[in-house]
């Protein structure tokens, strides 16, 4: 059977949550003993090669590619975890949710004070993922099994959660580790 497999993804996130995972310092060596990484930016594996026990998702879904990627994770992982506030509620990217998409693009690519854009158009093309009408929390696209809040979640939160899951123990986070900022 071998070690349990873990996959990770950064959707509409800033990679801060992945950084926090690296922040477990020398425990990373223990982690590598405990698990094997599959599809993840950590080892640059681009496609699932095996079924995974745990999928860690950073970021919400801002475009079509994010949503498809998340669905791919749901198909290939037994347990999916929203890691961080963006995965849980959309985070900073979701600030656009109150503004029509057209207006956002207009401001970002045409009207902003520092913009130089002689084409006069927002970028568009088959290789650019289509933006969704708003940024969706992961749980609104697929079923998410657990949520670890924080921006980013403290390294210790990620560590304790992973260890609890992999050793089949209940996760009981202490007060200091539940944080939304």
């Amino acid at each position: 059977m071998g070690k349990p497999k873990v996959a990770t993804a950064s959707l509409a996130g800033c990679f801060g949550c992945h950084m926090s995972l690296l922040d477990i310092d020398d425990k990373i060596l223990k982690l590598v003993e405990l698990v094997e990484f599959n599809k993840s930016p950590v080892d640059d594996i681009k496609k699932f090669t095996e079924r995974c026990a745990v999928g860690l998702i950073e970021g919400g879904c801002a475009n079509e590619e994010n949503a498809h990627n998340l669905q791919d994770f749901r198909r290939n992982c037994d347990i999916l975890i929203s890691v961080g506030d963006c995965a849980i509620m959309g985070g900073i990217p979701a600030m656009r949710n109150g503004i029509p998409l057209q207006e956002c693009l207009q401001k970002a690519y045409l009207e902003g004070p520092t913009i130089y854009n002689p084409t006069g158009k927002a970028p568009n093309g088959p290789d650019i993922p289509l933006l969704l009408d708003k940024v969706y929390p992961c749980s609104e696209i697929v079923k998410m099994d657990y949520h670890l809040p924080g921006c980013p979640p403290p390294a210790e939160t990620l560590w304790q959660a992973l260890v609890a899951l992999l050793t089949d123990k209940p996760l009981d986070l202490p007060y200091e580790l539940i944080k939304y900022d």
Partner: peptide, 19 residues
Amino acid sequence: LAYRLGVLAPKYPYLFPKR
């Protein structure tokens, strides 16, 4: 209050109201 009550994430869909 959410910290004290141990809320990891709301179970309801976000409304994203315009305010």
